[in-house]
Design a protein around this nucleic acid. Structure first.
Length: 315
DNA sequence: CGTTTTTGACCGGCGC
DNA sequence: GCGCCGGTCAAAAACG
């Protein structure tokens, strides 16, 4: 950046007292001194700004590097998780077959995972079976699906999960496996937004609302209404103990739904975002990725299993 | 009066 | 092919 235009380079910094001697009046001398002082302070300000700019640029670069490292680590962990789950899927499928319940395919696939927002890819061990069929398997996990469990008050009978977005209810059904009705919502903030949400009370703990999100918002999150009690509340998120899961701790964490939520916003470091270089956004992304990984119960369980499998040889 | 919610009807996938 | 079931539609009702 060019700041020289701000400085009058014609100023003679080597002015000698002799010039003062020839000045017409004391007032003029004082004006010269004031002018000099003003320009010197401007110059200091410019240097300070340049220094600040350099500092911010350095920090920006550092955060970019951190984000890159984080993305790489994320991909490595994701691949490890994918491998681990592809091994475990066999036993889960067998268990599902043994219980004899008539479940739809789509529902039984990811039923045991609280949050499926981590894209595990369509390729898995079962792909070999599908390759034999004539009809190629469609990329059925194109739409991102995630589940969020929200602790509500016992007296709260509504099926409303406030997450910052505007939803329009378009249906309600009582499903076979749960006497509590399931509500169907569409995102009404943008008419073209494909995101849908299903909300149903947990069969095991009816104070817990299970919200299932499908798809990704194609619009920014609507602005919050400041001070609104309906949007500025903390809710408690619980990981629901699964009957087929042996390592569910039932740990309770508190999630402030007034902030952008991880389960809904898939972090896309490579997205074409003009503000991606903003240090604030980059830090936000880093924090979101870190918390996304650590808060995901299935991810923690898989990591724990992977670690224990590493140290404890299988029997 | 426009928007949202309710609710019964309808549709399509899946298992038998 | 039939029935079950989850998901969606759309008209009516409710709401602000």
């Amino acid at each position: 950046m060019e700041y020289t235009h701000l400085i009058d380079t014609s100023l003679n910094l080597n002015a000698k007292p002799l010039q003062v001697f020839f000045s017409d009046s004391k007032q003029e001398v004082q004006n010269h001194i004031d002018d000099f002082e003003r320009k010197r302070s401007q110059k200091e300000e410019v240097s300070a700004l340049e220094e600040e700019l350099n500092r911010v640029s350095t920090e920006n670069q550092r955060l970019t590097e951190m984000l890159t490292v984080m993305c790489e680590n994320y991909n490595v962990l994701r691949n490890q998780l994918k491998d681990h789950m592809s091994k475990n899927n066999v036993t889960i499928d067998q268990k599902d077959m043994n219980d004899g319940s008539r479940k739809r395919k789509a529902e039984s696939i990811n039923n045991n995972y609280v949050n499926t927002s981590i894209d595990l890819g369509s390729s898995s061990a079962s792909d070999e079976e599908d390759s034999s069929s004539k009809k190629p398997k469609e990329e059925h996990i194109k739409t991102k699906i995630s589940r969020v469990c929200v602790q509500t008050e016992a007296s709260d009978t509504s099926l409303i999960v406030k997450d910052g977005y505007q939803w329009r209810k378009y249906g309600q059904k009582v499903t076979r496996d749960n006497p509590c009705p399931r509500a169907y919502f569409k995102c009404s903030f943008a008419p073209t937004c494909p995101v849908k949400k299903k909300v149903q009370r947990s069969i095991e703990d009816q104070s817990i609302l299970v919200a299932t999100y499908e798809g990704e918002h194609n619009h920014p999150e609507p602005p919050k209404q400041e001070g609104s009690p309906s949007t500025a509340r903390n809710v408690t998120i619980k990981s629901i103990p699964s009957s087929t899961s042996h390592n569910s701790s039932g740990a309770t964490i508190t999630l402030d739904l007034t902030k952008p939520k991880l389960q809904e916003h898939e972090v896309r470091p490579n997205a074409n975002n003009k503000n991606i270089n903003s240090p604030v956004l980059q830090q936000f992304l880093v924090e979101q990725m870190a918390t996304s990984l650590t808060k995901d119960p299935s991810f923690r369980a898989a990591i724990a299993a992977a670690i224990s499998g590493k140290f404890l040889p299988p029997n």
